[in-house]
């Protein structure tokens, strides 16, 4: 074959998006198709795993076809198929994993299992070339992690949440305020309209720890609302949202900046669905002016939420590292990100 370009197909079905993308040479998006199920899950106030799995089966071949059409390539052009192996909802992951295996088998294309969070981190490589060492702040509905990378494909978790993920706390606070699902964007919007006047706790944990904890903050918000109700007072949702958001962002940004200086990194990457949060973006940008010689990269919104372009981007590097999966690849909801270090 004279084709020297690397073409990776990415497949992502770990939660409620059925997504397929085609990535050229690790950094160029040739196709990026996402079929969102959010409208279906809204009525339940959250993602229902069995329903998510059923929707993935309904969508998978349609999304595959769209992606190939958009990229204008054939199966024979593909260098490898990358698929989210975990973590995520096991039934949902299984649809992507088995579809990926079927395509790989049918055309004799190498298969690469990819960690979902590695995907979120590599969404940044679709924006700018990565420079090491770097720190990634990963914040989503299921994750809050600080990941240190000394080189491509090498992931070291230096801090993670001990209870709720930041996105989970957002959803629960949104429910307390009777905001529709998903609540994160609503809180972010309300927070822009209010002042952070309500004192709420910040969990710094023990000295030097990069871990996070959001369950105390979540309970404090719920108590604040209940106590006000008992006194017959009404709390302004804008003020509560602003106070809650300030507390979350304060901890996230402070720990990230501290890690960035301590590890002397060249870049800080923001990753995950909560990276779409305006308050977080602004606060990080502001604080960043304090550390010289370190670049902050924040992907556009569409690459922060779950998508398959990020899986293709991560898959490109894993494939170059020589990582390949067999036809026995399984969905692994508890997959460890450092497994290939």
């Amino acid at each position: 074959m004279t084709n020297v370009d690397q073409w990776i197909m990415g497949i992502e079905t770990s939660c409620d998006e059925t997504a397929v993308a085609i990535i050229k040479n690790g950094r160029e998006i040739a196709a990026n198709i996402v079929a969102s199920q959010i409208e279906s899950h809204k009525r339940f106030g959250g993602v229902v795993p069995e329903i998510a799995s059923r929707h993935h089966v309904e969508q998978i071949t349609i999304v595959l076809e769209e992606a190939l059409k958009q990229a204008g390539i054939q199966y024979d052009d593909l260098t490898a198929i990358a698929v989210t192996e975990g973590p995520g909802l096991v039934g949902a992951l299984l649809v992507g994993v088995n579809a990926a295996k079927a395509v790989a088998f049918a055309h004799g294309i190498p298969l690469v299992g990819v960690h979902h969070i590695a995907g979120h981190i590599y969404a940044n490589r679709l924006i700018a070339e990565l420079q090491f060492p770097l720190i990634a702040l990963v914040v989503s509905g299921g994750h809050t992690e600080l990941v240190y990378m000394k080189e491509h494909g090498h992931f070291e978790v230096i801090g993670e949440t001990r209870d709720d993920a930041a996105g989970e706390a957002y959803d629960k606070v949104a429910r307390t305020l009777n905001l529709p699902y998903p609540g994160g964007p609503h809180i972010d919007r309300l927070a822009q309209e209010g002042e952070a006047t309500i004192p709420l706790p910040r969990a710094w944990l023990e000295e030097g720890s990069y871990d996070f904890s959001f369950s105390g903050l979540k309970s404090a918000v719920i108590n604040t609302v209940h106590n006000a109700e008992q006194r017959g007072e009404k709390i302004k949702p804008q003020e509560l949202a602003a106070s809650f958001q300030e507390s979350v962002i304060d901890v996230l940004v402070t720990k990230t900046i501290k890690a960035a200086s301590e590890y002397k990194v060249k870049q800080v990457l923001l990753a995950g669905g909560v990276a779409a949060n305006k308050g977080l973006r602004t606060a990080l940008e502001d604080k960043f002016k304090e550390i010289p010689n370190c670049e902050l990269i924040i992907p556009p919104l569409a690459l922060c939420t779950d998508n398959a372009a990020m899986i293709g981007a991560a898959g490109s590097i894993m494939f170059e590292k020589g990582i390949q999966s067999t036809m026995a690849l399984n969905a692994n909801p508890g997959l460890d990100i450092s497994i290939h270090n």
Partner: peptide, 12 residues
Amino acid sequence: RIGVTIAKTLAW
């Protein structure tokens, strides 16, 4: 779902 996903993806 495993069987149907593999079958429809192979056929397609």
